Amino acid sequence: MSVPQPERQRGRVTLRRRQVPTGTTDQRLLDNKSGRADFIHSDTWRVLRIQSEFVEGFGALAELGPAVSVFGSARTPVDHPDYLLAEQLGQALVRAGFAVITGGGPGTMEAANKGASTAGGVSVGLGIELPFEQELNKWVDVGVNFRYFFARKTMFVKYAQAFCVLPGGFGTLDELFEALTLVQTRKVTRFPVVLIGTKYWGGLVDWLRESMLADGKISAQDLELIQLTDDIDEAVAAVQSAENLSTEQATGADDAPVEA
């Protein structure tokens, strides 16, 4: 006669044999005899931290209104032409009715936040915990600090109508291709991805065309997701045209007859 094996349900998880824990969940919750805090480093605890980051981000930005995420290098000096370009971009976006979202750090991010703040708009900084110290720049009006890159990236995408990308390094490329991938795969509604700086970005666009497209790794339509310019007014116009199109589509959807 077979001996019945112990079994316990933990939510959607079934535990059997040696995986069945001794004691109960309440017992482990209330028992602090060991005095150890190992639980705060467990994956289940991290899930709660991740959840809290999304809740804080959604709560802080839910009423932001139309916004544009601006990316660029943290290493851009204050006296560099790209710093002035980012500041002017921040100002122009505010004048066009948009809040400005950056990574909240120094360099290009600081410049875009400065432009937005001095123009009287909303200047948002989404910071990230790094091994080296990096505080939110002083021009951020609404700041949210994140532990996890993926939670931070969600905020960049969820609350932006467009991405404007100035010269930058690996982090900027990561954010750029994250946006392009989401648009290409239709995980998000199509929005403009504007590369500002033809000299800096031109080689990358040429490589995409001459290598990736030529080898069939992307389609010609994929390249149309990218707009390349040196002109701030042209960049802002691209953002505005997409915003107007989204508004028209939303209005059309509201006016469309409803089928039973």
Rank of each mutant, 00 (worst) to 15 (best):
Q5P: 00
E7R: 14
Q9S: 15
R12C: 06
R12M: 05
T14L: 09
R17I: 07
V20A: 14
T22V: 12
S34Q: 13
G35T: 12
I40K: 08
S42Q: 06
S42I: 06
D43E: 12
R46C: 05
R46E: 11
L48C: 10
Q51A: 12
F54T: 02
F58Q: 12
A60L: 05
E63F: 09
V68T: 10
S69N: 11
F71I: 05
F71K: 15
T76M: 01
D82N: 12
L84E: 13
Q88A: 10
A92N: 09
L93F: 09
V94C: 00
R95E: 15
T102C: 01
G107F: 13
N113A: 03
G115Y: 02
S117E: 06
S117C: 12
S123K: 01
G125S: 03
E129S: 08
E129R: 10
L130K: 03
E133I: 15
Q134R: 11
N137Y: 07
N145H: 11
R152D: 04
R152T: 02
A160W: 02
V165D: 01
L166D: 02
G168D: 00
T172P: 00
L173S: 03
Q184W: 03
Q184I: 01
V188A: 10
T189L: 00
T189W: 05
F191H: 06
I196D: 04
G197Q: 03
K199F: 01
V205C: 13
D206P: 00
S211Y: 15
G216H: 10
S219I: 06
Q221W: 05
L223D: 10
L225C: 10
L228Q: 13
I232F: 03
A235M: 05
S246D: 12
A253F: 13
D254L: 15
P257K: 00
A260F: 14
